[in-house]
Design a protein around this nucleic acid. Structure first.
Length: 378
RNA sequence: GGGGUCGUAGUGUAGCCUGGUUUAACACGUCGCCCUGUCACGGCGAAGAUCGCGAGUUCAAAUCUCGUCGACCCCG
């Protein structure tokens, strides 16, 4: 019996409705995972997240390994207890940090020699070590160490990174079997497909990863600066050959329009810092597009951020008030807009699931994008 | 009446002593753009000032001199 159940395949698109079973509850897909790198989704409490409808959150093995360190997490009784979140958690391995903190690393086939961005201490991360860390974290879905490349990137470099990612995937799979066991109901291990923007490399990587029989498949290394049509094209090409019986996770994506596009192509899971980072920087995502909350335009605007939204922020506060909070550097502003944005993202997946169930995804998508990119602001 | 301090973008200031390297700087405010597996309450940019007004000195004045107007302070 698989932990992932494909409930319905939309007849108007490649979008799918599914359920992913974990020991901490089921996740309806398509789903969006708010990012809580430091064992917290910045400014939001677990109660806030649940109120938004978040079913799973993402955290990060690399960051937690450095701080507070695994001894603290072990003594706390695992990551869930440590941060007071009892729903599923997916942890990223730190593969992306190799990419984003590139100045502080040396990659070899054996692993990654990192210098901590916090105190300069050196650490050596291997595929095995990363599995061990995530075992101790106790996250419900764990990710193998991978190598992400920048865009643009040469074919040779992309090929080397893809091959290394594959060889690390094999080691991760083996380490998981040895350290945690084969039982996927405790912790699932997804395989990450790299290959940059080269279709043939992506397909090769995908086939290799598929053969290793992971619990799910992840598209890595996308949305790193490549044009959108390239990103969607690569996603489409890879998704076409992924087995429908397993969940597909598009790592680090994306903006609202990206979710809408990728769901159309058959992606089931997403994570992105956008709702929280944009929220902290004063941009709200609304059904009518992005809104820069601090603009003077809203000084005396006593409407909610989005009149179509049912979140706590929209039910209780006005644009004028939120603008005031940002203008005065009050912390509540960061929190209220982050809350709204996370709710908005959850609402996208909720309504997408409804549309898929009704075989109506294409119409839903068109309606969403028409409104989102329409010129009317209010 | 006498003496003094000060007048530079919407606001608050720097520059003035030791004129030119000033396309007059900075902060806040205003406006715009950016952020995609978070070293990120972050990053980038734009508009906005005939330097109170007038005259003089000088090759050259926000800067020196004189006058004038205005604000404030002290002494009568």
């Amino acid at each position: 019996m698989s932990d992932f159940t494909l409930i319905h395949q939309d007849k108007s698109s490649s979008s799918r409705l599914g359920k992913l079973a974990t020991s901490r509850g089921q996740i309806d897909t398509p789903c969006f995972m708010p990012v809580g790198t430091q064992a917290t989704v910045k400014t939001l409490s677990p109660v806030d997240l649940k109120d938004c409808g978040a079913q799973i959150m993402l955290s990060n093995a690399y960051h937690l390994f450095l701080r507070p360190g695994m001894e603290v997490i072990r003594q706390a009784g695992g990551l869930h207890k440590f941060m007071g979140w009892d729903k599923p958690v997916l942890t990223d391995s730190g593969g992306f940090q190799i990419f984003s903190l590139a100045l502080l690393r040396k990659i070899s086939d054996q692993g990654v020699d990192f210098q901590s961005h916090i105190d300069g201490d050196r650490h050596f991360l291997t595929p095995e070590k990363v599995i061990e860390i995530q075992k101790d974290l106790g996250s419900d879905i764990i990710m193998p160490l991978d190598e992400c490349v920048h865009y643009p990137c040469t074919r040779d470099h992309a090929q080397v990174a893809g091959e290394r990612t594959f060889s690390w995937a094999k080691r991760a799979k083996k380490a998981k079997a040895e350290l945690i066991g084969e039982d996927s109901s405790i912790q699932k291990l997804f395989g990450i497909i790299q290959g940059a923007t080269f279709e043939d490399l992506r397909l090769t990587c995908a086939k290799q990863i598929i053969d290793l029989d992971f619990d799910g498949h992840a598209l890595g290394g996308l949305s790193v600066g490549e044009p959108k049509d390239l990103m969607y094209n690569i996603a489409r090409v890879v998704l076409e050959i992924l087995p429908p019986s397993k969940p597909r996770y598009m790592m680090g994506v994306g903006l609202p329009e990206d979710l809408i596009e990728a769901i159309d192509l058959g992606v089931d899971m997403f994570d992105c810092v956008a709702p929280t980072r944009y929220g902290r920087n004063g941009t709200a995502f609304t059904s009518r597009g992005k809104m820069t909350v601090r603009n003077a335009l809203y000084t005396k605007d006593f409407a909610p951020l989005d009149s179509a939204c049912g979140c706590y922020t929209c039910k209780n506060f006005t644009r004028a008030y939120l603008r005031h909070l940002f203008n005065t550097d009050e912390l509540l502003g960061l929190r209220l807009v982050s809350l709204h944005n996370v709710y908005f993202y959850q609402e996208i997946t909720r309504s997408a699931r409804k549309a898929i169930a009704a075989d109506n995804y294409k119409a839903y998508k068109k309606d969403f994008l028409d409104k989102y990119f329409s010129e009317e602001c209010v």
